[in-house]
Write a protein that binds this DNA or RNA. Structure first.
Lengths: 199, 199
DNA sequence: AAACTTCTGCACCGATCGGTGCAGAATACG
DNA sequence: CGTATTCTGCACCGATCGGTGCAGAAGTTT
């Protein structure tokens, strides 16, 4: 977007409307969220939606980006913890909390947004798979640095540890979608990290 | 079904067609599987489908039942292992294998069949959530018996152990849907059960 | 054979899907 | 002011959604 704002300005808050769209995708999944569901929640017309965000796939990608900066920000925050173990603990504690926040959909947009899909949802599904793989790669890189610094033993396998932690987080997301509480999931996280490193 | 077979017999194998329907739901999810996708895979017409299985929700329920008896049979089998730890190991090893079988969809029908859904998929979503909860309850009961027998210490919490194991299995399902290999997931399972009991 | 029951294939239903054309309203620029 | 540019609301598009009516074919029973 350039700084020019010639022409009629839009009558809605693009960021607030995107947040609403994110919630609809989060709660109903990509294929389960119809244009009608989205526009009603966002309070705008179809035409305004397409002009501001592009088509449904574009909107989904922007909603995911918004998710990563909002409810999913715990991931980036956890990576900054001082030790590998604290990274893992912060990551799983953040997942337990973010997936069970009151007033927000249960579970994780990056998991339930499109885990299996028909032809129309394939792009969304692949986008999320790539997003999860990217998160796992960030964890792996963080654990690699921990090995270099001596925080983790040289025998530790950063890739396997990252996969282990991400698998737990994904399981937490499914459990949350099924109604598990934050305390339930925090206990699972504690148990999963009781012996460290796991691999 | 009664033993009477008056009238024209159906021209297709109901069990084989159900198996095909299961695969479509497994790969594409409830909402992503259209009637056209289903009937083409099953090799029958819409009319035959409705006469033999009921509507789409009924077909989904029957496909899930079929899944539990087929690719998901590892769950019931694992429950019969002699010790609690072997139950958990067999369960997670079975999940790692069943979620990555060549020639079959990756992941678990009970997870990706309908994790988040719109209005039309709500029944399917709740059906799967209940199915997963039922599996967790079976694990819990099995671990309770292990406590009674002395296989698990009296301080162990069967409910928490069951939740822990099921959470790992759910995470394995998500990872498999994203392309993880059986070996990858077996290593995760090994790491998750390295110290026992987990709670 | 006739009568009865069930299954099949085709065409079709209203509803909803994602997406768009168009006219007019609202702003900035000259 | 006039003109250019953008946004809004409405109606509408073809395609697909899940589901069904109907005529006739294919069996069993008597």
């Amino acid at each position: 977007m350039s700084t020019s704002q010639i022409g009629r300005p839009r009558a809605f808050d693009a960021e607030a409307a995107l947040e609403k769209a994110m919630m609809v995708f989060w709660a109903q999944g990509y294929e389960g969220a119809s244009l009608t569901d989205l526009t009603e929640a966002m309070g705008i017309s179809r035409k305004s939606l397409y002009a501001a965000y592009g088509n449904k796939e574009d909107l989904f990608r922007k909603a995911l980006q918004r998710y990563a900066e909002g409810p999913g920000a715990y991931i980036a925050e956890a990576l900054q913890a001082p030790t590998a173990r604290e990274v893992a603990m912060a990551f799983l504690a953040g997942a337990a909390r973010a997936n069970t926040l009151p007033g927000l959909p249960a579970g994780c947009l990056g998991v339930q947004g499109a885990l299996a899909a028909g032809e129309t949802g394939r792009v969304a599904r692949d986008t999320l798979a790539e997003w999860r793989a990217h998160g796992e790669a960030l964890l792996r890189d963080r654990f690699r640095r921990a090995v270099q610094v001596g925080d983790l033993p040289a025998s530790a396998d950063p890739e396997k540890i990252a996969r282990y932690v991400m698998t737990i987080a994904n399981g937490v997301a499914v459990q949350a979608a099924g109604g598990a509480t934050c305390e339930d999931l925090q206990q699972v996280a504690d148990a999963a990290l009781r012996n460290w490193p796991p691999a």
